[in-house]
Design a protein around this nucleic acid. Structure first.
Lengths: 96, 96
DNA sequence: CTAATATATGAACAGTTGCTCATATATTCA
DNA sequence: TGAATATATGAGCAACTGTTCATATATTAG
């Protein structure tokens, strides 16, 4: 598998999105459907600030999308790529 | 997707293995077949020490296996799980 | 045996990460 | 309008990461 340095960096950045337990749990919740920042914070027992900071990173990587409604912002997964990675990783963790 | 905290941590650890460009490139080379530490170092233009340190981490996660032959140690992927993750990630990076 | 080679490993250090805290902005409510 | 609510964001900081450097161990060559 010949790989340019650029692609290696891009791949590493993609996997970095899932390299933290908080982000993994955020993504696992978003796989069920969209959720507001405060709902995520409550469910994950994290401050809204911490959740917001993580969502910012995921947004910048185009892994999640934000939809504003009133004073709430609802986040959802931008496409199925991340959930596919997530599921394959989960397979490995469970059996494997 | 309901997820225990333990599984979230395990998933994050798995993805952490691929969250660094050096490790991504090491794994991409091992997908071609086994290689010695010095061969990896030469190909990746890294010191043998840096490569060895990274291989240690991958070994502890049971993602690579070591085979000693004389004074060289040949590393190879322990199973296809990582290469599947790698390939799926690469898909995302290329198109998508 | 000694010297050279291949790898492993600990310490140290710079860079990064993820959090909290304070504050800013935007929206709704009274 | 002013107070309350929801989110975003920058600064600061402790913890973690990946590298280099020095050194240790193991194997082979002479």
């Amino acid at each position: 598998m010949k790989l340019t340095e650029l692609k290696a960096i891009q791949l590493a950045e993609l996997f970095s999105a899932l390299s933290d337990a908080s982000r993994v749990r955020i993504i696992s919740l978003l796989m069920e459907g969209e959720m507001s920042v405060s709902a995520l914070a409550k469910e994950l027992k994290m401050t809204e600030s911490a959740v917001s900071h993580q969502l910012r990173g995921l947004r910048q990587m185009h892994l999640v999308r934000a939809r504003k409604s009133g004073r709430q912002v609802f986040y959802s997964l931008e496409d199925e790529h991340v959930s596919r990675l997530f599921s394959l990783g989960l397979d490995h963790v469970q059996h494997g």
